[in-house]
Design a protein around this nucleic acid. Structure first.
Lengths: 332, 332
DNA sequence: TTGTATGCGTTATCAT
DNA sequence: ATGATAACGCATACAA
């Protein structure tokens, strides 16, 4: 996997510059850091020497002394999924406000890569944040000892510090909306592989509670892509004809579902309604726009940074809860 | 702007752990780094001590010794613009293959923030890559002495190492496609603020070359958002009635243009055709899907990392050129 | 198996 | 205005 490392040309150190300029290291330091107590001419000479040697201070040596730079490691599972840029946006904004660096890890939804990323993160960052694939991965994070702000992955993270989503509440909004529109026979396109996933469990529970025509068979698994959504809704239609409403794990799948339905010759929402989850801007662009359970993802990112800051300060913040709201557009 | 820094609880050092476990620092190091020469029982004790003190090795001290971790700083102007996740995707993939870290800077299209990000980057990363707003910013990068792989920002970067795009070639594909479809009176929705921007200049030049009905007035500036595109196309229509083809700076603006046209009661492409630039996946999701000048952005990201690696190795790579191709969809 | 000494590159403190 | 010296926290070579 690794490309063989180039034998990096050894970087010039402050010592080299000092030697070339005929001064001491401290003088170099003063010149480079724009300190006051230094002769203008000396400074010029030093900077010139630095320039010719292509000198740049080592961030490691610097970091060792000035213990002030903070780095947050952000773990996401697929930056190609528009959900994550939205999240990253919030994280970056909050990080910038605190003057933090953000290093990014994309794990491609692969638990193994997630573990590797976590290990790298523990090494390179002061604190982490992100969605984790499973309790096992979270356990790994704990084992590593990295403070980590967990973002609600849809499985129960216990009392792990971070930001949660009121998924049952959100799903309820979706299902009740469909029920209120008269839909009795529903399906779900599920993007999680864990059968205990909150969205799925909530969907089944609430549908049952409302006395709708829904059972385990009404849930179709799908990879979290537009194509995945389209395929899944088609499979759903084949297996359970007569479905008039579909709830999807997220908006990407909702967009796919709408495509799939239209491709099957159905009109949305007249023949079959679709409700997504997340409320991404993307949903507004398609035709019809997606009715979705909106979660303020950017804010979630900001809250994650706040939680990370608490952890860094040695406190253990209570998990914060995000409360979704329904945004009714054209698709349902 | 900065939140006042919490007086971070001082982290335990290897020394603290050694003291608590009643061993020397080196023994701690051995235990923590899974070295062979250590008594199992000692190791257990040490690890326990480390655990209770919440010890984590300092990345700075480590980095100082093992000079092997490489960090790439990626500068993007707006992660909310779907172009950049695409780019980041390629960068992250290539970085991961080399076992590099990636730290992300979002400058919000603000040149000042770009300069600040560049300064931070010079401090925190070994090498940088990204789009820069202007020659002045590039000059700043050079002044800082950071090796930087420049991604084609639409203005002439001279011989700066990095990845270019054959913009004139791409624009030609777009305009010729419109001309071939019989469109003579065109407009452009421009996302750049620099009047010398390659896309705009090429558009005007090629349209003129083809004898089309286009002049400076046919170019409408727009913020690079969907709404911006919609507004701009409306303004264009008002100023130059009879336009039947629109070329846009990028796909986000193309999506906006299509929206604007539809909102104005026009059919796309029958009444007015639209051609975008970039070929983002997003373009496939809207109705009609966007005909666009496709550039392999992910690959561009990978090439940027390759260029960065060259720079790091002390070489000066020739700028690589990306050659776009036209992807005809429904909008033109 | 464990400990001692040394150095990584920088800045702060204190001299000069 | 400049330089010597000591730290920062860790890992490695070497000694015990």
């Amino acid at each position: 996997m690794n490309v063989s490392p180039e034998p990096r040309a050894k970087r010039a150190t402050i010592e080299d510059v000092a030697k070339l300029a005929g001064v001491s290291r401290q003088t170099v330091s003063r010149a480079v850091n724009d300190k006051a107590e230094i002769d203008a001419e000396t400074k010029r000479r030093v900077l010139e020497a630095a320039r010719t040697l292509n000198y740049r201070p080592s961030r490691f040596a610097r970091g060792l002394i000035r213990q002030d730079t903070t780095t947050l490691g952000l773990i996401i599972s697929d930056i190609g999924n528009p959900f994550f840029p939205e999240l990253a946006s919030g994280v970056l904004r909050a990080a910038q406000a605190r003057d933090w660096q953000v290093v990014l890890y994309d794990t491609g939804e692969d638990p193994e890569r997630e573990v590797r990323a976590l290990t790298a993160l523990a090494d390179q960052a002061d604190v982490g944040a992100g969605f984790l694939h499973s309790p096992a991965v979270l356990a790994h994070a704990v084992r590593l000892g990295v403070p980590f702000a967990v973002l609600d992955p849809g499985w129960d993270t216990g009392s792990a510090p971070g930001v949660g989503i009121d998924v049952p509440g959100g799903v309820r909004l979706a299902v009740e909306h469909l029920a209120a529109a008269g839909h009795r026979r529903l399906g779900m396109v599920d993007g999680a592989d864990d059968p205990r996933d909150k969205r799925r469990v909530s969907f089944l529970a609430i549908a049952k509670e409302l006395g709708l025509d829904v059972d385990e068979d009404a849930v179709e698994r799908a990879p979290r892509t537009v194509e995945g959504g389209a395929d899944a809704v088609r499979a759903l239609l084949a297996r359970r004809p007569g479905i008039t409403g579909v709830f999807t794990y997220n908006d990407v799948l909702a967009v796919g579902a709408v495509r799939g339905l239209k491709a099957a010759g159905l009109r949305v929402p007249q023949d079959c309604a679709v409700v997504g989850f997340d409320g991404l801007p993307l949903g507004e662009l398609v035709e019809p726009p997606i009715t979705s359970v909106y979660v303020d993802i950017r804010r979630m990112g900001e809250l994650a940074v706040a939680a990370a800051a608490e952890l860094l300060a040695g406190r253990t913040p209570e998990p914060v809860m995000m409360h979704p709201e329904l945004r009714v557009r054209g698709s349902a």
